[in-house]
Design a protein around this nucleic acid. Structure first.
Lengths: 136, 136
DNA sequence: TTTACTGCAAAGCATTTGCAGGGCG
DNA sequence: CGCCCTGCAAATGCTTTGCAGTAAA
């Protein structure tokens, strides 16, 4: 579709390709500086927004309100602890086959999906028990 | 587990039960007022945080940064447009069976999961085409 | 020249936190 | 009497926006 890309968009995209993992806009801004590709924070956000609309970039918003950006082709899902916020990547993805189906049934042009499980990690389950034991 | 619930927590939980759909903390605050169950906004947030830790309440954070809360038992997933932000509820959930498996393989105590597809809704696909035609 | 992109700084908004008052055990 | 809960208001942090300068077509 819209292939008109600004230089900033290309630079952001290039960095995302190199990183191969999700990163926040703020962190992206820092990383760009370190690579002598200085650009304003607002421009980072604007570039990400455009790339998102194209479907080139996908977003995962943490419960902290911070968003992590990555290339759309990645199909990585998470197991997230509601207590400490730590995330573990999981290999399984039983959902992919559903996309084409949804395209037809809901007339949606699907770019990507997110799948995330929430609960308590092992460490926090133990901490939970400890605190219960301690206070009664 | 920790069954000690404050009055505020109970009131929040009661409202969530009545609503049976996800709602933001801000909106929850307003709704409580309307029902003569006035409580400070900070208390709403603190109650939701506690309920979340228990696993009684689940959260879905929108890309706007706003979070929507609902009872954990609901298993509702979404098709979200990255352009206009509209969400459609989808009936399918091919993931449920995975939870018990993950509990064992990753030692996670899973409360719930979120599954969300992102792309362009029909309306925005059309708008996209229009804008391309218009500008060249 | 005309339009679109960029940087900077200010503004916006949801959420969190400090602190003092109040309720419950 | 002591501790936890609560409200209010201030603070925080990510993201967005207004505006003027700049680069590109």
């Amino acid at each position: 579709m819209k292939t008109r890309r600004t230089r900033s968009q290309i630079q952001v995209l290039d960095l995302l390709k190199q990183l191969k993992s999700a990163i926040s806009a703020q962190e992206l801004y820092v990383q760009l500086r370190q690579r002598q590709v200085s650009m304003g924070l607002a421009t980072v956000y604007r570039s990400l927004e455009s790339l998102k609309l194209e479907g080139a970039v996908q977003v995962r918003t943490l419960s902290s309100g911070e968003s992590l950006y990555s290339l759309t082709q990645e199909d990585t899902h998470h197991l997230t602890c509601v207590r400490c916020g730590s995330s573990v990547v999981m290999a399984e993805c039983p959902v992919h086959g559903l996309e084409s189906h949804l395209t037809e049934s809901h007339h949606f042009q699907i770019f990507y999906h997110t799948l995330e499980f929430f609960g308590l990690c092992e460490q926090c389950q133990l901490a939970e028990e400890d605190s219960l034991t301690a206070t009664g």
